[in-house]
Design a protein around this nucleic acid. Structure first.
Length: 577
RNA sequence: CGGAGUGUAGCUCAGUCUGGUAGAGCACCGCCUUCGGGAGGCGGGGGUCGGAGGUUCGAAUCCUCUCACUCCGACCA
């Protein structure tokens, strides 16, 4: 390909509305342009990258035995009503009506469509297991699109759905997908990690996310040093090093005046105690019932620990999304402001985190203004109804499997695999006959990869001050040829053209910067670097005097000299294919 | 959806407070010079100042409404 016949849409300056580096560089390198919030046009160079990623995903999915299909982007409401998600999904599901006033939506995912297809096609256990996938634009009307294609409303996704006769078969395919995903992200040249994950509103039991490690990531992922444990912080478990064992003798409690010390910080300063001797009591909203007429719930943690919202939302009877009771509501029901709350004689359920379960002789609010209890104890003055893990793990906690301590890094979620079970097959009556001729609901799994998000996350992980540095596997072009002073030297032009033909013949993708003399060498160097082309060859009169070319890797600093007749042998070991 | 902010040339921005002929750099077009790291000179094209209403002799500038976009929080590939 020649730059003179290609759209090189590079920008010298950073567009003002781009915040993260990948978004800035995708705009500057001329990969994408914005149409509206969260919707982007892919320019030629960007689309080449997207296609590279797509091709690798497709190859590995095919290798795993999955079958590619293509389902409609527009889906009828009936299917969604059948699964119950038409009402559950909320405004993220973009709905509209056709000319006959029949309701439709733009597909944000395809569990309903595939389940409908397979319940009609499959009749026998002999047809199982089977795994179907597609690579297609999805639409989700995000509350807040951001970071360019990282969280777009329209995005390219690989989604796969597997069908099984039982859990054991699902487990096998799940493991196969886990391995396939690892192969994909390895081939893409990304630094990634698979972590245990929450299943969110897709439902199901077991789930893993695949994260590309990057500081700009929106998720915290937790893992130990040996690699034997990794989880999204949403559900990560950890063992506190200095956990109380409940062995201390109980002291009688006493009430003390704590004035306007309402926070944990103020209390530790006032009482000269470590935060591990305090408990914090948070009041959240719960469903109103006969047993819980106030519609409230207390969540109790050790003073130095933080609440994990996602874990808390799994408690029975709690209001989702997690909502804190207002000061006024608390005052009305408990009789004091939030600064003096404690788990003593509260008129609603008290859930205690494991960090506080075994504490002895702790400090907590007395549910009276400006008063706290010292040497409070469970069973003596305080009570709880349930012990649960509602704590956010911290860096330095011990790994739950006993191997090493936990660290926390930022990650970008690029893949997610779920064991769905029979959630959709049950709602939509998708069954086959087993060996005994009895109808059995199919067990399902689903597996997603954010293809367009991968492009952005690859840039987050591979860039420098001059621009993008593509891994060879997904570069729009692997090699840039820059002729110098071509207008003054017929030989430079001739050699450049021959070189391009030779390299393309050898199967490389080459971009020859043949822009005319008005485009200075500096501009060409800068553009090719900004676009992230990983290998560069400069053709100059100076070099050709000795039948030599100059090679530079986008990842390395210096340049190397290559004999004109030895280029192919020189490049072969340097370019990953 | 709550909170904050921004809309002026393709891009980055000045001008708005204090109303008076719409600007700069980059990009683009033409000619000349230059040619291994975003060159220089001369000449040129390009704007309903996000939109609507209002105040005024006069509005990018003041007032009201509205739309779009970005950022911070809750959701997700």
């Amino acid at each position: 390909m020649r730059t003179s016949q290609y759209l090189i849409a590079t920008l010298r300056e950073t567009p003002a509305d781009a915040e993260v580096i990948s978004h800035q560089l995708m705009l500057r390198a001329g990969l994408i342009r914005k149409l509206a919030s969260g919707m982007y046009t892919w320019l030629p160079a960007g689309l080449r990258v997207l296609h590279k990623v797509t091709a690798i995903v497709r190859e590995e999915m095919n290798r795993s035995g999955a079958m590619e299909v293509s389902m409609p982007v527009v889906q009828s409401a009936e299917l969604w009503q059948e699964s119950g998600r038409w009402d559950k999904m909320g405004p993220e599901l973009l709905r509209f009506v056709d000319r006959h006033d029949r309701p439709f939506c733009l597909g944000p995912t395809h569990e309903e469509v595939i389940t409908d297809l397979i319940r009609n096609e499959f009749n026998s256990y002999k047809q199982l297991p089977a795994n179907f996938y597609q690579i297609q634009m999805k639409f989700r009307d995000e509350r807040r699109p951001r970071f360019g294609v990282m969280r777009a409303r329209e995005f390219l996704m690989k989604d796969a759905y597997s069908f099984h006769i039982d859990e054991a078969s699902l487990e096998q395919t799940y493991q196969l997908m886990y391995q396939t995903y690892s192969n994909i992200f390895t081939r893409l040249g990304l630094n990634f990690r698979a972590v245990l994950a929450d299943t969110g509103n897709i439902g199901g039991s077991t789930s893993h996310e695949f994260h590309v490690l990057a500081d700009s990531g929106e998720d915290d992922i937790v893992f130990n040093s040996t690699g034997s444990y990794a989880a999204n912080i949403e559900l990560a478990d950890g063992i506190i090093r200095d956990l109380d064992d409940g062995s201390a003798a109980m002291l009688p409690s006493r009430k003390i005046d704590t004035g306007d010390a309402h926070s944990i910080e103020a209390l530790i300063a006032l009482l000269d105690l470590p935060s591990t001797k305090l408990v914090k009591t948070l009041i959240v909203k719960a469903e109103v019932s006969d047993a819980n007429p106030h519609g409230m719930m207390a969540l109790v943690l050790r003073g130095d620990q933080e609440l994990n919202d996602i874990k808390a939302e799994k408690l029975a009877g709690i209001v989702c999304p997690l909502t804190f009771a207002s000061d006024a509501e608390i005052e009305q029901v408990v009789g004091c402001k939030p600064g003096c709350l404690g788990p003593n004689k509260l008129p609603f359920p008290v859930i205690v985190d494991r960090s506080a379960e075994l504490m002895r002789n702790f400090v907590c609010g007395a549910n009276t203004a400006a008063t706290h209890l010292v040497d409070a104890n469970w069973g003596q003055d305080c009570h709880f109804d349930l012990v649960a893990d509602i704590r956010k793990v911290r860096e330095g906690d011990l790994s739950p499997d006993g191997q090493g301590e936990l660290s926390i890094k930022r990650g970008i979620e690029v893949g997610h695999i779920f064991q769905l079970g029979t959630k959709y097959s049950k709602a939509m009556s998708a069954s086959v006959l087993d060996e005994n001729g009895r109808a059995v609901l199919m067990t399902m799994g689903c597996y997603g990869i954010g293809v367009s998000r991968i492009v952005a996350s690859a840039i987050e992980q591979n860039h420098d001050a001059n621009g993008i540095i593509w891994p060879d596997a997904i570069a729009p072009f692997q090699i840039a040829i820059i002729p110098l002073n071509a207008h003054k030297s017929a030989r430079v032009t001739e050699v450049s053209e021959q070189l391009m033909a030779q390299l393309e013949q050898a199967g490389y993708e080459v971009l020859l910067d043949d822009r005319d003399k008005k485009t200075s060498p500096g501009v060409k160097f800068a553009d090719m670097e900004l676009m992230g082309i990983p290998h560069r060859i400069v053709v100059s009169d100076r070099g050709l005097e000795n039948d030599e070319l100059e090679y530079k890797s986008r990842r390395a600093d210096g340049t190397e000299t290559v004999a004109l007749n030895a280029v192919l042998g020189f490049l072969a070991p340097r370019i990953t294919r």
